[in-house]
Amino acid sequence: MLDMLPRYTLLIVSAVLLFGACEQPLDITIEREAPNIVIQSNFSENHVLQVVVQKEERFSSNVFTQIVTDATVKVFNGDQFLETLEIVYTQNNESVPPYYQSVFFKPVVGISYTIQVEVPGYDPIFATSLIPQAANLGDISFNNQAESLEGGLESINFEIGISFDDPADVDNYYHIIFIQEVTNYTINSNGDTILGKTELINPEDLFVDPLNGNIAMIKFTDERSFLLKDDAFDGQQISIPFKGSFFFRPGSQILQPFKVDFRTVTEDYYLYHTSFAKNSRTGGDPFSGPVVIHDNIKGGSGLFSGYNSNITSFDITN
Score class of each variant (00 low, 15 high):
Val96Cys: 03
Asp3Tyr: 14
Glu31Arg: 04
Val291Ser: 09
Gln133Tyr: 00
Phe207Pro: 01
Phe262Cys: 05
Arg7Asn: 09
Gln145Arg: 09
Cys22Asn: 12
Leu153Asn: 03
Gln66Phe: 01
Thr90Trp: 03
Asn46Asp: 15
Phe81Asn: 04
Thr29Lys: 14
Glu118Cys: 06
Thr317Met: 02
Leu18Arg: 03
Leu206Glu: 04
Ala134Lys: 06
Ala71Thr: 08
Phe59Pro: 00
Ser189Leu: 05
Ile177Met: 10
Thr72Leu: 15
Ile187His: 02
Ser245Ala: 13
Glu204Pro: 04
Ala34His: 07
Gln24Phe: 10
Pro203Glu: 13
Ser163Arg: 07
Phe220Thr: 11
Val119Asp: 09
Asn144Ile: 10
Ile179Glu: 15
Gln116His: 06
Pro286Lys: 02
Ile194Asn: 04
Ala127Ile: 03
Asn212Gln: 07
His175Met: 09
Ala277Pro: 11
Leu26Ala: 15
Ser225Met: 03
Ile39Gly: 06
Val52Asp: 11
Ile179Met: 12
Phe220Arg: 07
Ala168Pro: 15
Phe19Ile: 14
Ser239Trp: 00
Val52Glu: 11
Val103Leu: 08
Lys106Thr: 13
Gln50His: 06
Ile240Gln: 11
Ala216Arg: 04
Leu211Asp: 15
Tyr173Trp: 11
Pro107Ile: 05
Ser61Trp: 02
Thr84Asn: 12
Asn93Gln: 13
Lys259Leu: 12
Ser252Phe: 05
Ile140Lys: 01
Phe104Trp: 03
Thr29Gln: 15
Leu200Lys: 03
Ser252Gly: 12
Glu45Phe: 00
Thr193Leu: 06
Arg224Glu: 07
Asn144Cys: 11
Gly138Lys: 04
Thr72Asn: 15
Glu118Thr: 01
Phe220Cys: 10
Leu206Gly: 10
Val96Gly: 02
Ala34Pro: 12
Asp165Met: 10
Gly78Cys: 03
Thr9Ile: 15
Leu2Asp: 13
Ser60Arg: 02
Gly235Tyr: 07
Phe304Lys: 07
Asp315Gly: 09
Val48Gln: 12
Gly191Trp: 02
Asn172Lys: 08
Ile297Asp: 07
Ile240Leu: 14
Asn184Lys: 05
Val108Gly: 11
Pro257Phe: 09
Lys259Thr: 07
Val63Ser: 13
Phe164His: 07
Glu23Gln: 14
Phe220Trp: 04
Thr69Trp: 07
Lys106Val: 09
Glu223Asn: 13
